[in-house]
Amino acid sequence: MIWIFIYAELLVFGILFLAYAFARARNVALFNESQLHLNRTAGAVNTLVLITSSYFVVRAVAAIRADRTRACARWLLAAVAMAGIFVVVKLGEYAAASAHGITMSTNTFFMFYWAMTFFHFMHVLLGMVILLAVWWKARHGAYSAAEHTGVETGASYWHMVDMVWIILFPLVYVMH
């Protein structure tokens, strides 16, 4: 079931990516110029943070399959901490953009920048809530090697959030 949801979410993001790409095709100069205002290093740091967070979630799943509940909870918490870094960096980027008076109305590029990254940002926040809920249940021994559907579901969702960012970063920050 979570897979149907994940595919549907990927579809939404996929259409956003394609809309961005074809909107760019109609206004290449504007997109290339605007892209230079983005902080590529911040984007890359966030990519590293998210893939590492995803990896920690993998470790959490591995731990629970070996029936190591406490290790599972620890890895989950570490994953959430990484997500926290993502949030901080992203908010910093948003603050810098706002300080330069860059809004959704600035131009089509920044409309997409705000819409896509913010939509993804909301997914990160939701993912954090889900991971925290799974962590809380794991800590209270709700999962075991035999039954840990909740961990797997939360993990799959989090990997989806990661995957979307892996496409978003080169597309919006780097490619021109």
């Binding site: 984007g43 590293l48 920050y173």
Partner: peptide, 14 residues
């Protein structure tokens, strides 16, 4: 691999 590729993308970007 993901870390390596991300750093490569960053280098290209910078």
């Amino acid at each position: 691999v993901l870390v390596g590729l991300t750093l490569a993308v960053l280098a290209i970007g910078r």
